[in-house]
Each structure stands twice: as C-alpha cells, then as structure tokens.
C-alpha cells in the first residue's frame, strides 16, 4: 500500500493538534494544551478506489520554521502549514516559512491552511484574504470539523498525482 508522510506545522496555538485530533480521532477539546515535540498516527484513505496510508506528524509549533528540528522533515511527502485566522502573528512569517520549507524539502507539496474559521465572520475572512502574502489553500475549523476531511482528502489526491483542484 502507498504510504505518505504528512507534516502539520506552523506557529504555536494555531490548532495543529486540534486538526490532528479532529481528523484522526473525530475529537475536539477547547482547552489549549501545547505540544512539545512530535506525535504521529496513521489513517487509511481511499483515492479513486485505491487505499493509501497517510502518516500524519503533529509537530510542536514554532514562531518560524527554521526553529523546527530538520530531522522532523525527513521523508515528508507533504506539509500542511497552519495559521490562526484570528492571530496576525501566526501568518506574518508566511513568506519566510514557505521559502524555508521549499529549501529544506525541495518540491514538496505544501498546503496553507487558515484555521479557526468558526471564530471570524465571512466579512472578516474576505478582508483577511486581501492581507495575506499567500492565500490559504483552504480555511478550516477543527472545532466544527468544517473542511478538515476535504483538506486531507485533497492532499491524498494530490499525492496520488490526480488532483484537479
């Protein structure tokens, strides 16, 4: 079976662990508990009738990606870069971080995710999109589950090489 390593990364407190828990265990907890290192689990998905294993790494948040231990990136097929739609500090380094990750993992598939969509209005979201250096690929809410499954499903499709989005 095809296996792909996916990394969830971004600043601290943006909801990486919440996305991890929502996707893998269908769970959500409002309380913020920081992560100090890495937790990994797997989920099998179907892409065009073929099974694929996603090995998801939930790694501790850092202000910039160059602070993340390089060993965490070994063998990664894709990176999900998460920022918090309510905290500008979590997307102010987006340009630097994306360039850095492209250097560490040349050509790797990167999805930029704006999380905590449930905390802002549609108007606020539209205003925010104009501010961003790089538009997010998808806006999610780990709390409600909105767009979490599509995020990983689209990623799996992209990794299979038949993404049409």
């Amino acid at each position: 079976m095809d296996k792909k390593k996916i990394i969830l990364t971004g600043n601290f407190g943006v909801g990486k662990t919440s996305l991890f828990n929502r996707y893998l265990y269908s769970q959500f907890d409002d309380k913020y508990l920081t992560s100090i290192g890495v937790k990994v689990d797997r989920k099998n998905v179907l892409v065009n009738g073929e099974e694929m294993t996603l090995l998801v790494w939930d790694i501790a948040g850092e202000i910039t990606q160059d602070k993340v231990p390089v060993s965490y990136f070994i063998g990664a097929s894709a990176v999900i870069y998460v920022f918090d739609l309510t905290r500008p500090s979590t997307y102010k380094n987006l340009e630097f971080d994306l360039k850095y990750m492209d250097k560490v993992l040349p050509g790797v598939l990167i999805k930029v995710v704006g999380n905590k969509k449930d905390l802002i209005s549609t108007d606020q979201l539209e205003a925010l999109k104009k501010e961003l250096y790089y538009p997010a690929d998808i806006y999610t809410s780990a709390k409600t589950g909105e767009n979490v499954e599509p995020l990983f499903q689209d990623l799996a499709k992209s990794l299979k090489g038949d993404f049409n989005g």
């Binding site: 290192g37 890495v38 937790k39």
Partner: peptide
Amino acid sequence: IRIHKISPI
C-alpha cells in the same frame, strides 16, 4: 537519524 521529544502512540 535522531528524532527528539516523541510522544509515541
């Protein structure tokens, strides 16, 4: 290859 601060499942 060394990976730090792992919380294994």
